[in-house]
Amino acid sequence: MVEQMSPLGDAYVPGSHGNFADGTGVKISLPQPGSIVEATAWPGREAALAGAIERVTGLSLPHHPGGGVVTGDRSGFGIGPRKWLLTDAAEGLAETLRDALGIENGTVTDLSHGRTAIRLEGERAEWVLAKFFALDFSSDAFPVGSGRATMHHDILAQIQRTGPSRFNLYVFRTFARSFWRVLCHGAEEVGYEVR
């Protein structure tokens, strides 16, 4: 397979940036999962979809809105009614899942190129994210594993909390460079490291 090219171009500058008076507030990175997939069940077929996802990925997705899980190379979380966003470090998830699901149960859309994953982690991750999103990032309101679909101005973002102070953000690829820039800009205050 030909490797995907990052959409960031010259906006991606590894190293340390911003104000380090109090150490590195956040680390920003580009995890580049091989597969990003949106899966949707028809009404009443949610269980069939959850079953297919579990068979294919081993992810046992909670049914409550916004619920999700992260295991090793894979993750999944609810992004809308009967709709999940799934990722896998490996390529090819969309095809496997589509075969496992069947059109009578729902649809699978490959977004591996269409969405860009950005990882933000560190002590000040909640603070930095709160500059962009009108979401309650406290761990009570936004527990590990769960996800939210939201937006920063014109940029739609799907966000999963993958650790106590770690988040994965999925944004539309063509907005990724722009969003990366504003994210870095907002992180300057707390000091950030790109890697």
């Binding site: 809105p65 916004g66 609810g78 809308g80 009614p81 009108a134 939210r148 679909a149 939201t150 937006m151």
Partner: peptide
């Protein structure tokens, strides 16, 4: 939002 919870009108 019945799915996402309370969200700002701008969404």
């Amino acid at each position: 939002c019945p799915y996402c919870g309370p969200r700002d009108v701008s969404e």
